[in-house]
């Protein structure tokens, strides 16, 4: 019964939450610029519109191009299972964070192959950037999740994210982890200052340029996949800053988690409204912040005797 409720809550969160978070980010950006901004559910309307359209595919493309968007969506959905989005995570086991990382990797690879399948130089350029930045980010992601697991003795990712050791010495681990994960959101979610989701110039894009040729339901799948991934990444941080303790009951924790997710989206939106996109050559240095922060987190766990 409880398991069914958890799964139902997770599925509901997967449908509604990514759309809303993207809406929140866009609303913050609009307000910051003095505009009213689109409705919070705009992405939902967009997806619905796209789903009813026909598909146009490039004459050079093969089956890879047709399947790739759905692998992107499927892998993002599957990866979200180990993260508490609204209420407990439906799945949890030892080292499940590796499954999350590798599933994200699968989604990224599918997206890049779809882009290369069109033979467009622009899309090849986007894939090249995505591959490079993704590879550089990987050590940070692995290290930070190891640090959290070690600090909390949590067997699964969900436990590591939600357990709060009473030890005040754990604070440096948390701070470093939050810093690293914020960069992870920006890189994996293709947000500013790494990538500009609203730019009009193909030469400066990363994520958007890879999906230039997708259309109709295919495009909907890619956008939904990206939103799910963004929501999952936001939930990683939201779980860490969730103010409600586990003792307060499941519903209260879930409420706190949702509020924390919105707070993370607000931060992302505020950063996006105030910061310009980095030059591409500077992005590796920016990612280095995440790597260093995650290394600090690991060192903090070990030297403070938390592990």
């Amino acid at each position: 019964m409880i398991t069914a409720a958890i799964i139902a809550a997770h599925v509901a969160a997967l449908v509604a939450w990514p759309i809303l978070l993207v809406g929140v980010i866009n609303r913050v950006k609009a307000r910051w610029a003095g505009r009213r901004g689109p409705p919070l559910w705009q992405l939902g309307f967009d997806l619905w519109r796209l789903l009813r359209k026909d598909v146009v595919r490039s004459t050079t493309s093969t089956a890879v191009f047709a399947i790739a968007p759905w692998i992107v969506l499927g892998s993002a959905l599957a990866a979200s299972l180990v993260v508490p989005l609204a209420g407990p995570a439906p799945l949890g086991f030892r080292f499940d964070f590796l499954l999350l990382i590798y599933l994200w990797g699968l989604g990224r690879l599918a997206l890049m192959l779809g882009a290369l399948d069109t033979g467009s130089p622009f899309e090849g350029m986007g894939a090249s950037r995505e591959a490079t930045f993704g590879a550089l980010l990987e050590p940070a992601l692995v290290l930070v999740l190891i640090a959290l697991a070690a600090a909390t003795h949590g067997a699964s990712l969900a436990e590591a994210l939600t357990t709060r050791p009473d030890d005040p010495q754990a604070a440096p681990v948390w701070i470093a982890a939050i810093v690293a994960l914020l960069v992870v959101i920006q890189v994996e979610g293709a947000r500013m200052p790494v990538d500009d989701p609203t730019t009009h110039l193909e030469l400066t894009m990363i994520h958007e340029v890879m999906i230039l040729d997708h259309s109709g339901p295919d495009l909907a799948a890619v956008q939904a996949g990206a939103a799910v991934k963004l929501a999952t990444a936001c939930a990683l941080v939201a779980n860490l800053i969730n103010p409600v303790p586990a003792a307060a009951g499941r519903l209260a924790v879930a409420g706190g988690l949702l509020a924390a997710s919105v707070a993370v989206a607000l931060v992302i939106g505020a950063v996006e409204a105030t910061v310009a996109r980095l030059r591409l050559r500077a992005v590796p240095q920016y990612i280095l912040i995440a790597v260093v922060a995650s290394l600090v987190a690991v060192l903090a766990t070990r030297w403070r005797g938390l592990a």
């Binding site: 789903l51 026909d54 598909v55 146009v56 595919r57 490039s58 004459t59 050079t60 493309s61 047709a66 399947i67 968007p69 759905w70 692998i71 969506l73 499927g74 892998s75 959905l77 599957a78 990866a79 299972l81 799945l91 499954l99 599933l103 069109t118 033979g119 467009s120 622009f122 193909e202 230039l212 040729d213 109709g216 339901p217 295919d218 799948a221």
Partner: peptide, 28 residues
Amino acid sequence: IAVAIGAATVGVGVALARRVRRHVTWGC
């Protein structure tokens, strides 16, 4: 579970793309 989800989404994708038109790659 991930394989099941992936297979299901690909299935949905194939089902939704009933009418496909072909066009040259968008050259910006």
